[in-house]
Computed example of a mutant assay.
Amino acid sequence: MSNRFILNETSYFGSGAIRNIVTEVKQRGFRKALIVTDKALVKFKVVEKVTALLQQADLDYEIFDEVLPNPTMNVVNAGLIKFKASGADYMISIGGGSPQDTAKAIGIITNNPDFADIRSLEGTAPTKKPAVPTIAIPTTAGTAAEVTINYVITDEENKRKFVCVDPHSIPVVAIIDSDMMASMPPALKAATGVDALTHAIEGFTTLGAWELSDMFHLKAIEIIARSLRASVKGEQQGTEDMALGQYVAGMGFSNVGLGLVHGMAHPLSAFYGTPHGVANAVLLPHIMAYNADFTGEKFRAIAKAMGVQNSERLCIEEARIAAVEAVKSLNRDVDIPATLREVGMKEEDIPELAKAAFADVCTGGNPRPTSVEDIERLYRSIY
């Protein structure tokens, strides 16, 4: 058996890292960028932090700002039209997971036109060529889409989100600059931060986990657990650390997969537009408790990474409870909703939600075998 690991060609970290974009563009010989983003980031002049640098260096660009939360197939198609019309030869994706995922889909289809039907990219599509080169600049500390080979698109017609896993989609450059995240409101910092914690915990316990990925995930749990509260309060060091922690989590889970939290979160976004990070955050402690008996000693390591004192002295049942309680405590401290009803779930939709969650590609990595009936019961218990 062999294990594969794929990461960005180049990544930059730290306050002011965005200034490296000009050097990267010139060294790679790129001519014109299509900037993929959303209207809010243009309105609040976050995108301007990048375009100002491009203008100073006399680098050409156009902007596509039609991206929506939980990006749809229609958004991707509009982006494809814009990219072709612009004459661009690379992209700069600026934003959270939605602009990053949109750019990935645009880049893959542009260079692999046989997959113009976006639904054909679901799962592990056999694309032949790398996507259009993309420089990814996250503005949230959560999704780690800038370092992953995954992207998620919403099929509005069928009310479902589908996951695409393609090594050809990874951005060539990632720039993780906490200054680009400074305008995040506290609620968004909280939701995206627990999303990052979900990536780390699910990546650590997924069936595909191994020693190299475990190293990344445990470090990510440690960084996030010590930094998220401070980041939500607006402390600069907390924000800086969260920018790193979410990226480290992405380095791991992109290569080994996730689990039932994501499987159950995706339908909530598809049905109701629930922000992905919020859905994950509400679900995480409950699914951890559901999986606990199938994780060996891993919950003890999670408890230790989250700062639980004397975790090595606890019996395994106590260590598992301590890990779940540490996550619940963090959720409470950053004001994550406690129930799915608070984030818009409708009880009458549970049977359909459960079917969609069971079919989700992430569910297959869950450490505990599950069924549609199990998932229905979980949704009801968290409702």
Score class of each variant (00 low, 15 high):
residue 270 A to V: 00
residue 160 R to Y: 03
residue 236 Q to P: 06
residue 57 A to E: 01
residue 267 P to D: 02
residue 76 V to H: 00
residue 136 A to W: 03
residue 6 I to E: 13
residue 4 R to T: 12
residue 24 E to L: 09
residue 115 F to L: 02
residue 109 I to Y: 07
residue 256 V to T: 14
residue 152 V to W: 07
residue 92 I to Q: 12
residue 139 T to N: 10
residue 97 G to K: 09
residue 299 F to P: 11
residue 198 T to W: 14
residue 333 D to I: 11
residue 275 P to G: 05
residue 190 A to L: 04
residue 288 M to V: 00
residue 347 E to D: 13
residue 103 A to L: 06
residue 25 V to P: 11
residue 142 G to I: 14
residue 365 G to L: 02
residue 160 R to L: 01
residue 358 F to D: 06
residue 145 A to C: 08
residue 256 V to F: 04
residue 167 P to A: 02
residue 354 A to T: 08
residue 226 R to G: 10
residue 86 S to T: 01
residue 97 G to M: 11
residue 38 D to N: 03
residue 13 F to S: 09
residue 10 T to F: 12
residue 334 V to G: 04
residue 265 A to H: 01
residue 220 A to W: 13
residue 251 M to P: 13
residue 105 A to L: 09
residue 97 G to A: 15
residue 81 I to H: 15
residue 88 A to I: 13
residue 103 A to Y: 06
residue 263 G to V: 10
residue 174 A to H: 00
residue 14 G to V: 11
residue 350 I to N: 10
residue 233 K to D: 02
residue 10 T to E: 12
residue 295 T to H: 02
residue 279 A to M: 06
residue 1 M to Q: 15
residue 314 L to G: 01
residue 297 E to M: 08
residue 9 E to Q: 14
residue 174 A to K: 00
residue 64 F to N: 02
residue 225 A to R: 01
residue 223 I to M: 04
residue 128 K to H: 13
residue 156 E to S: 14
residue 306 M to N: 08
residue 341 R to M: 12
residue 146 E to H: 11
residue 233 K to P: 05
residue 52 A to G: 13
residue 151 Y to A: 09
residue 203 G to E: 14
residue 204 F to N: 04
residue 22 V to L: 10
residue 121 L to I: 13
residue 147 V to L: 14
residue 335 D to K: 12
residue 171 P to K: 02
residue 103 A to F: 09
residue 297 E to V: 12
residue 373 E to Y: 14
residue 97 G to I: 06
residue 70 N to L: 02
residue 152 V to S: 10
residue 335 D to E: 12
residue 244 L to H: 13
residue 68 L to E: 02
